[in-house]
Computed example of a mutant assay.
Amino acid sequence: MKRKSALICGVSGQDGAYLAQLLLTKGYEVWGTSRDAQGNSFSNLNFLGIKSEIQLVSMDVEDFRSVWVTIKKAMPDEIYFLSGQSSVGLSFEQPVETIQSFTIGVLNLLEAVKMMNYPVKVYHAGSSEAFGDTLGIPATESTPFQPRSPYALAKASATWLVNNYREAYQLFACTGILFNHESPLRPQRFVTQKIIQTSKRIAEGSSEKLILGRMDISRDWGWAPEYVEAMWLMLQQETPEDFLIATGQSFTLQDFVSTTFSKLGLDWKNHVEQSSELMRPTDLAISKANPEKASQRLAWKAKMNMEQVIEGMLNSSL
């Protein structure tokens, strides 16, 4: 019996690496793409000890021929689109690149799948940022998108593309609308990893200060290795549907900071400064979620809360 195969677009990122690890444990043949597979160090895959088990290929998501050739080569049962510029802050500096990386990439993928002569299931990584500011009301799958950043706009556009192709061509294509999810594999440019690493250095004797922007914003922080299981579960359903993935609990960034320093035996107020230079042109005050649909339909529920996420990141040897 043929092993199921999966193609992960963007396998070198946090979610791509954890998803590859999960699929390998389930017996999948895993293919992973990067813009330059030969030049990429795939440090996350090496950290997880799985690089040698994945068939790595170069693919440019913005080049249709590259996408088509890669899919024809891998002949996957499932495709997970996790590619694209993943930083909200950086999207204000690189709006064109951010929007193209998602919208053109997803469009090329959907067109290629539409042309395949066998059924392929497609997962697209959406984002809670697309909801914009819901004024503290927990978002659900039916909450309208009101994007407030180039990143959010790109994610919203890509989600609408997936919906359109699903309805127009009966593709098995769905979007996971993921709220913030962290892990030791988060890059340093993400505020959670910046907080974790800076606080650890301070605890070890560094005299530096942790410089942050707004600290009153609220976010729903989950554990990335749990969220990739939800991605997989979406493609195991009989019909394609979008699902919101979150813990259902929101905390302020100040909560995240104070909890982190407290676990290291420090008072955050002695080590943190705020800078107007780190304030974004627009930022969501409160990000809240109602993940009830995923709980009922996927039997998926987040196990780790914010405090446990912080512990997991602090205890990492990465």
Rank of each mutant, 00 (worst) to 15 (best):
T140F: 10
T140A: 10
E141A: 04
E141I: 06
T143K: 03
P144V: 06
F145E: 09
Q146M: 14
R148P: 12
S149C: 10
P150Q: 02
L153D: 14
L153E: 15
A156C: 01
A156S: 09
S157P: 14
A158N: 12
A158D: 14
T159W: 02
T159V: 11
W160P: 11
W160E: 14
W160A: 14
V162N: 04
N163P: 04
N164V: 07
N164C: 10
N164F: 08
R166E: 08
E167Q: 10
E167A: 14
A168T: 13
A168W: 04
Q170I: 05
L171E: 01
L171G: 07
F172I: 02
A173Q: 07
A173Y: 02
A173P: 08
A173R: 00
C174H: 04
T175L: 00
I177Q: 12
I177V: 09
L178Y: 13
N180V: 12
H181V: 04
H181M: 05
S183N: 09
P184W: 01
P184R: 03
L185N: 06
L185T: 00
L185V: 04
Q188V: 14
Q188F: 15
Q188H: 13
R189D: 15
R189I: 15
R189K: 15
V191I: 14
T192Y: 10
T192V: 13
Q193A: 08
K194H: 14
K194R: 11
I196Y: 01
I196A: 01
I196E: 05
I196L: 06
Q197L: 11
Q197D: 15
Q197R: 13
Q197T: 12
S199W: 05
K200Q: 13
A203V: 04
G205R: 03
S206R: 08
S207A: 15
S207V: 15
S207D: 15
S207R: 14
E208T: 09
L210Q: 06
L212M: 06
G213L: 08
G213W: 07
R214T: 12
R214D: 15
M215N: 11
M215H: 08
D216G: 08
I217R: 15
S218K: 09
R219V: 07
D220V: 10
D220K: 00
G222T: 01
G222D: 08
W223P: 03
A224E: 07
A224K: 01
A224V: 11
A224L: 10
P225R: 00
P225W: 10
P225V: 03
E226A: 12
E226I: 07
Y227V: 12
V228C: 00
E229L: 14
E229M: 11
A230H: 13
A230V: 11
A230R: 11
M231V: 07
M231A: 12
M231H: 13
W232L: 13
W232K: 15
M234K: 06
Q236D: 02
Q237D: 02
E238F: 03
E238Q: 05
T239W: 00
E241A: 07
F243M: 04
L244D: 01
I245E: 01
A246S: 05
T247W: 06
T247R: 10
